[in-house]
């Protein structure tokens, strides 16, 4: 079979579109990776993770809850618009499991939490 430009154009366009759909499906189906807060570095930026640790330095400001995972000086976790349950359960020295996406804000890595669960 002769691969002329027209055929290559059609095949490559189809493969590109199919590949993009598959990539989006992979993202959607992707299981978060479990990692300890201390191991999270720049290479984890924008990745969805599950991380466990003890809460430290908890404070609430402008409808957002902040705390450090792994105690004082640990990895910052941000919970936007926390629920009443989260506000009640997320306290210093509690052991929690955080599910969220690693982001960078003002040069510091942080987890934007999607779910925080107490396990202690």
């Amino acid at each position: 079979m002769e691969f002329n430009d027209f055929l290559v154009k059609k095949v490559s366009l189809l493969v590109s579109l199919a590949g993009i759909i598959l990539l989006l499906f992979l993202v959607f189906m992707e299981e978060p990776l479990e990692i300890s807060p201390g191991e999270i570095d720049e290479s984890w930026l924008n990745k969805r993770v599950i991380s466990e640790g003890v809460i430290g330095g908890r404070f609430f400001s402008k409808d957002t809850l902040f705390f450090s995972l792994g105690g004082e000086g640990g990895l910052k976790v941000v919970v936007f618009s926390p629920t009443v349950r989260e506000l009640g359960e997320i306290r210093d020295n509690e052991l929690v499991k955080v599910r969220g996406v690693v982001k960078k804000y003002k040069g510091q890595l942080e987890i934007i939490a999607e779910e925080v669960e107490t396990i202690g």
Binding site: S12, V15, S16, G19, L22, L23
Partner: peptide
């Protein structure tokens, strides 16, 4: 997953060549 990225990006590269 890298293999998938390789194939998809090569397809786009071929699209530029054929168009």
């Amino acid at each position: 997953v890298g293999i998938l990225l390789l194939i998809v990006s090569a397809a786009v590269g071929l699209l530029t060549i054929s168009t």
